[in-house]
Design a protein around this nucleic acid. Structure first.
Lengths: 206, 206
DNA sequence: GCCAGTAGGCTACTACGAGTAGGTTACTTC
DNA sequence: GAAGTAACCTACTCGTAGTAGCCTACTGGC
């Protein structure tokens, strides 16, 4: 017991309506989560940066995870906006694909924090796990580059690397996709991805 | 103070040499991390499942993250083994790609726990964040399927979905790859991926 | 102008899990 | 059979997510 109450607002702090405060909190949270990682960020830290006390965060977002979810929700909306805007402008199917890809990559560039959250990287405990995962990725890329070089000696090294990264990314995603669909066998997945890649495996001159 | 010591080994528990105990711990840890997620798994829980006390885990692996890293290390080795074995057996570059893809997908199937760790999914706090990330993925897939259908009305829905997932995976990976290489612009990345995908965009009959 | 009612805010707690200090006991080796 | 060490333990500290319970600035009605 013996609760000793200090003045509620130390000095120049202002009361704000809920909607505005929520936006403010999201802004800070996205930044801090993306920079320091979900795990290594404390609610106290976010509260302090907003210039508010922790219980307010819980009042508005329920939990630490709830706050992360709210950040993700916002990023998701922004990503969809970016892609559909690009799609609306394009003419012809090839242009369409090209512009959407570009919109995607630009989103990553311009909304670095939102992007960091969307890849679940923010959830990773910290940098040495990050490093290890990168090394696994590098391992797979290297093997794949070796395979590619046989079919496509015409490609320059950077293109080769980009192709290899793309293939690994596609394979990982397909493997993930398969988890929700038990009807798709490993052979099916292989066939699908192989079909997509085969035309690009043919050497350009024949 | 006042440390009251109970018998060190309650009953039938056996002392094991370090190497063996480490293997045993890794086995349990991989399983528990993969099932419950890194965040939601406590060291006490792992210790209990092994039938050991927490300080032993710290003695052998240094920290919770160290234990995760050791699990990742092992999974990484296994994945490399699987792929290189497949590559060694194959004849011709197309067969090579095909068999490696297949080895990859089979690895995911046969080593579900190791695979769950390798995608960093284990790091994700818990299921509702997982759900949200899945929903973002679904959103992107849907948009992409729409684009694809224009160029390739010949594909059946499952193939279409597989293509879309592959493209999204490739794009994500490339975006990640770009983060370590500031020289590659968003336009470069777009061009690389577009070049890889373009041949498969052409309708089959012309 | 004054008095509810409420929305925005707070301090000071509890609970739980990562990591540590410092001790005990079963094997090995001479 | 004693010495040394490797395997193992209990019982802590400390940081952080989440909660209880209280305060106060603004609003609208009189």
């Amino acid at each position: 017991m013996e609760i000793q109450q200090a003045p509620a607002q130390p000095s120049g702090r202002k009361r704000l309506p809920r909607a505005e405060r929520e936006r403010q909190i999201l802004e800070v949270a996205e930044q801090v989560f993306a920079a320091g990682g979900y795990q290594d960020t404390s609610m106290d830290e976010i509260a302090q940066r907003v210039g508010l006390s922790k219980p307010m965060l819980y009042e508005y977002f329920g939990s630490k995870e709830g706050l992360l979810l709210a950040c993700l929700e916002r990023a998701k909306r922004e990503l969809l906006d970016a892609t559909t805007r690009a799609a609306a402008r394009a003419e012809g199917p090839e242009q369409l694909l090209h512009d959407c890809l570009q919109a995607f990559f630009r989103f990553g560039e311009e909304h670095a924090q939102a992007w960091a959250l969307l890849r679940n990287e923010a959830a990773i405990p910290n940098s040495s796990v990050h490093t290890e995962l990168e090394s696994i990725r590098a391992q797979q890329t290297e093997v794949t580059m070796g395979l590619l070089q046989v079919s496509r000696p015409d490609l320059d090294p950077v293109q080769l690397e980009a192709f290899a990264e793309s293939i690994i990314g596609a394979a990982e995603r397909l493997a993930l996709w398969r988890e929700g669909r038990p009807d798709i066998t490993a052979e099916d997945a292989t066939r699908h991805l192989f079909a997509l890649l085969l035309p690009s495996l043919q050497p350009p001159a024949g």
